[in-house]
Amino acid sequence: MNELEILKSAQEFIKNQFTGETTGHDYFHIERVVNSAKRIAKEENADESLVEMAAWLHDVGDYKLNDGIDKSEELITDFLNELEIPNEIIQKIIEIVSQVSFSKGNQPTSLEAKIVQDADRLDAIGAIGIARCFAYGGSKEREMWNPENPETSTIQHFYDKLLKLKDLMHTSSAKKIAEERHRYLEEFLERFYEEWNAKS
């Protein structure tokens, strides 16, 4: 298998696994992360093929989608072994994937890991990030907003995570994109509270 065929196999694998997923971690989320990661990798002179493969696989086995159990290393290894990928490359991909998640709090140890993490975080902010936030909240049966008990609401996730992401970007390419998307989060919240508190 050449590199193009391997990446095509990864794309088909992800499409089969994630099409129709309803928490905001669907195939199209992963495709957007791949496209962002490829663009950033080119601008940052990173290993583009490694970045693309890790981006395709970054949500495989994620604990959020597996009842709180992280199966990423196991499932990614099984898939890449089927493609006869050298173990050295498999370990690099697993290392990158293990450093992507916000909740795990792992710091990226390579440029490629920084890029995939940035690309994933960019998809969590801006208009699509807002839509994904409410999709995930709904899947967890969270209230949209409850001013009497804000900690349990989807809006609280803006403060717990989304509004922090702009300042956590690593690459200059991602930082530029994040600035605009962050402003949109702030504008959305301002409008949300304005409408919520409107008096008849």
Rank of each mutant, 00 (worst) to 15 (best):
G20I: 03
L122S: 08
R121M: 13
G126A: 10
L189R: 06
E187S: 09
F134H: 01
F192W: 11
E179A: 13
N146R: 00
E148H: 14
A46E: 09
T77S: 13
A41N: 10
V97W: 03
E43P: 00
I76Q: 03
Y27V: 08
I69T: 13
I93A: 06
T171I: 03
N45E: 14
A41Q: 12
K71V: 04
M169D: 02
K15V: 00
D160L: 06
E190M: 12
L165N: 02
V100L: 13
H182V: 00
L50R: 05
G24P: 06
T22K: 15
L57S: 12
I130H: 02
Y27P: 06
I85K: 09
F18I: 04
K38M: 13
K164I: 03
E187D: 14
V100C: 13
S200P: 15
I89P: 00
D167C: 02
I69Y: 08
T22D: 14
E12T: 07
N146T: 02
S153G: 10
A178S: 09
D78A: 12
E44A: 13
I115Q: 12
E190V: 07
E74L: 14
L185H: 15
K42W: 05
E73P: 00
Q107C: 03
Q91A: 03
N87W: 04
W56R: 06
R181W: 11
I155S: 10
F102P: 05
L165H: 02
D26L: 02
K176A: 10
M169R: 01
P86Q: 04
I30R: 02
E52F: 07
I14H: 06
N146F: 01
E112S: 05
E195H: 12
L165K: 01
I85G: 11
F13G: 04
R142F: 11
S110G: 04
A113C: 09
G137F: 08
E88F: 06
L165I: 01
N146V: 01
R32L: 09
D120E: 04
E194L: 15
I93P: 09
I125R: 04
N45T: 11
W56A: 05
I93L: 09
A135V: 01
F192P: 09
V33R: 02
Y27M: 09
K71H: 11
E141A: 14
Y184S: 10
K92N: 14
K166M: 07
L163C: 07
S72F: 08
E44T: 13
T77F: 04
A37I: 01
N106V: 05
E12K: 14
L165S: 02
I94V: 10
G138Q: 14
A135F: 01
